[in-house]
C-alpha cells in the first residue's frame, strides 16, 4: 500500500467579494502519494493559485477535506497552520523569496527558527544542504550577491531543511533562463529520485513534461490528471 503525503477530497474554496461569491475551487480531489512528482497546470483563473495556497496551508478550504498525514487542514487554527507550514511543507517560490538581510546559511535556517529545531548542531545541517545544492563556497554571501539560479538553489536548500512531507514549488523556473531552468529541474528530479515528494505549479508544458504526473486545472475543477510516460524518474 502506498503511503499518502496528502489527500484532497472534494476541496472547495469560495471568495466572498462585496456583491458576489467567487467559486475558485469547485470540488477538487486527488492524492499525493509519497515520492510522487506532480505538476499542476492551467490557465490563469483556473484555480491553480488557490489550490497552491491551500496545499501550502496558507489558507483554509471552504469545504471538503485536505488531509496531511491524518490531520485535516480544514479545521486548523491559525497558529496550527503556521506550525504545519514550519514542520511539514517546503516552499519554493518563483521569485525565490529569500531574506535580503541574511546570508545563505541563515536563510536556510529560517524555517528551523519557527519550528523550534534551531540548535547548535542544526547549523552544520544547513551547511550540508547548501553543499548539496552546490553553494558550499557562498555560505556567507547575501542574496543580492547571487545569480537567480543560485538564489533558487538557496530556496531549494531552505525547503529541505525541515524535512517536509512534500515540497511545494510555485513556478520555480519562471524567472530563469533555459539553461538555469534545466539546472534547477535537474536538482528537483534528483531530489525526487532520492524519495522527496514534490508538487509544482507551472504554466510551461516543457517543464511539466519533466515531472511524473500532470494535473490540468480548468474553472476550479481538475480537467485531466495523467502520468507522463516519458518521465524517467522514480515514482510510485
Amino acid at each position: 500500500m502506498t503511503v499518502l503525503a496528502a489527500s484532497l477530497r472534494d476541496l472547495q474554496k469560495d471568495y466572498y467579494l462585496s456583491s458576489e461569491t467567487v467559486r475558485a475551487l469547485r470540488g477538487v480531489s486527488f492524492d499525493v502519494p509519497e515520492g510522487d512528482y506532480i505538476s499542476i497546470m492551467g490557465p490563469s483563473g483556473s484555480g491553480k493559485s488557490t489550490l497552491l495556497n491551500l496545499l501550502g496551508c496558507l489558507d483554509r478550504p471552504t469545504g471538503g477535506s485536505f488531509l496531511l498525514g491524518d490531520e485535516d487542514v480544514a479545521h486548523m487554527s491559525d497558529d496550527k497552520l503556521a506550525e504545519t507550514r514550519a514542520n511539514r511543507i517546503g516552499f519554493i517560490f518563483q521569485s525565490y523569496n529569500l531574506l535580503q538581510a541574511l546570508t545563505v546559511v541563515e536563510n536556510i535556517e529560517v524555517p528551523l527558527y519557527y519550528s523550534g529545531d534551531l540548535t547548535p548542531e542544526s547549523r552544520q545541517r544547513c551547511i550540508d544542504l547548501a553543499t548539496k545544492v552546490g553553494l558550499e563556497d557562498r555560505l556567507d554571501h547575501r542574496p543580492a550577491q547571487l545569480s537567480g539560479g543560485q538564489q533558487q538553489r538557496v530556496a531549494i536548500a531552505r525547503s529541505l531543511v525541515n524535512d517536509p512531507r512534500f515540497i511545494l514549488a510555485d513556478e520555480p523556473t519562471g524567472n530563469l533562463d533555459t539553461a538555469t531552468t534545466q539546472e534547477i529541474l535537474g536538482i528537483l528530479a534528483e531530489l525526487n529520485a532520492q524519495g522527496r515528494t514534490i508538487v509544482m505549479v507551472t504554466h510551461e508544458p516543457e517543464v511539466a513534461e519533466q515531472t511524473g504526473r500532470t494535473i490540468l486545472m480548468r474553472d476550479g475543477r481538475i480537467q485531466s490528471d495523467e502520468r507522463n510516460m516519458a518521465f524517467s524518474g522514480v515514482s510510485s
Binding site: 503556521a82 507550514r85 531574506l99 524555517p111 519557527y114
Partner: peptide, 16 residues
C-alpha cells in the same frame, strides 16, 4: 510586508 509574508509562509506564527 514581503519579508513578513515570507516568514509567515516559512512557519512564523502571528506572535513571532
Amino acid at each position: 510586508t514581503r519579508e513578513i509574508g515570507i516568514r509567515r509562509a516559512l512557519g512564523a506564527k502571528r506572535r513571532d
